[in-house]
Design a protein around this nucleic acid. Sequence first.
DNA 1: CACTTAATAT
DNA 2: AATATTAAGT
Length: 292
Amino acid sequence: MCKHKKQRLSAMEAQTQIAIKMHELEMGLPSLDDLAPLTQSLIPPQLALAFGINPEPSRTPIDLNKAVHESYSSICHREENHSFEPPLRLLPRPDCSKTKRVESSGPKEGGGEDNGTGRAIKRPRLVWTPQLHQRFVDVIERLGIGKAVPKTIMEMMNVEGLTRENVASHLQKYRLYLKRMEGLSNESHSNPRQVPSLMDCDGFGPGPMLVQQPPPLHCNPPSLVPMPTVVGPLSGPYGLGPMGFPVAGSASPGYCGLESGALNMHWSRQRGAWGSGTLAYLQGWVLKGAAY
DNA sequence: CACTTAATAT
DNA sequence: AATATTAAGT
């Protein structure tokens, strides 16, 4: 009896503590008068020029409004898909010297930029991390491989600084990869006698002796459900496949684990199938006895 | 134009 | 080896 009272009390205390903290926080915030409007550049153009910093693109209230709407609809879209992908940022921070410019508003990202000195700037070469590749694959699955073209993919991936060229290049490789996988599974059909030989362990995917059914899972995911993936150092002793996929054949158990969203295995509800290119890998996992 | 593909460069 | 770039064709 007394216990309940105490619990209620402490709950209330916690509430008031939070309220107090919030109040303190708010007190610490600058007043409206102290804030610069978002339309105003944080760095005056002259100063930016003097230090060789990319001048900020000018933002009109319309730009801001647009940006807000874009963010909003982007969030809604993600909600619709039951997917929680925070907007991704390629670089820790837009670096002032030679990175890409990033602002969504204003003139398109396009063209050879210069940072005021008239010199063209080079963006650092993109590294397709598993997370990034994951997003890439997600988008392709939503679009369907037929409609997945560089521009659309780029837009849907919603990654700051990602270019169409980046995506096109990756897509080219991804398609080759898919083709290879197809070839493999066909071959296994027509020529079951063939021995997988190297295919199993050379880092290019599992061999042909695979079951054709999606493995039974304890749950059929509502939409997109992250599948078990390899975790650990990106270039560890387990093999990374052609697209940077982990390869079952060469994965050592010590490096296997469950981590949501790290790699490319998804159940596609639309198609009622494992995401393109992932089936064989998943089967590889199952055959290897990966537990989940 | 944007897209594909192959070849080549970094 | 992974990514970018280029060239040529649709």
